[in-house]
């Protein structure tokens, strides 16, 4: 049996990921998470002296706090298994990555364990987030200087 035949068998037997259903689930789960976030934003604007712009910070903190509780109780991975990218892309997914790594490495102590491994998964999010933000800002700056768009 050569490699081609084998690849064919593997292809045939491997279940295809249900792309459309997965996207729908991701849309629903992501949508629900973002709706909760929007409600929290409204809550902070209504009852605290935050404007639309400044309410973003406490909202993110609250969402990460909720993600922490869901991660600690083992619920977040169940949501993720259902929602896929819908639960990974919002800030709760970032929180989950940080918190799960911290829980995991508690056994190696606070400094080398938690401190050293906390951003094991989330580190690349930070690195490439900063990098892409830099390039987006660069492109926008050039466009503004050329007079195509305004700030």
């Amino acid at each position: 049996m050569d490699q081609k035949q084998f690849d064919k068998i593997v292809d045939k037997q491997t279940p295809k990921a249900p792309l459309f259903v997965n996207m729908l689930k991701a849309f629903l789960v992501g949508g629900i998470i973002c709706t909760v976030g929007q409600l929290i934003t409204f809550f902070y604007i209504r009852f605290f002296p935050f404007t639309e712009r400044t309410a973003a910070n406490p909202t993110v903190a609250t969402m990460v706090f909720i993600a922490m509780i869901l991660t600690g109780t083992g619920l977040y991975k169940k949501i993720s298994q259902f929602g896929g990218a819908g639960s990974a892309v919002p800030v709760t997914g970032f929180g989950n990555a940080v918190i799960s790594a911290s829980i995991e490495h508690k056994s190696e102590g606070y400094v080398l364990g938690i401190g050293g491994n906390m951003f094991k998964l989330a580190g690349s999010v930070i690195v490439f987030g900063v990098l892409s933000a830099f390039f987006v800002a660069l492109i926008k700056t050039i466009l503004v200087k050329m007079g195509v768009v305004s700030w």
């Binding site: 491997t14 279940p15 990921a17 991660t71 600690g72 083992g74 977040y76 991975k77 949501i79 993720s80 298994q81 929602g83 896929g84 990218a85 639960s87 990974a88 997914g93 989950n96 990555a97 918190i99 799960s100 790594a101 829980i103 995991e104 490495h105 094991k120 998964l121």
Partner: peptide, 17 residues
Amino acid sequence: ERQFRYPIEYGAQKPGS
């Protein structure tokens, strides 16, 4: 799991395989 894949509580969607 923690050695070969992700932390246990990390929400990564597992494929059917």
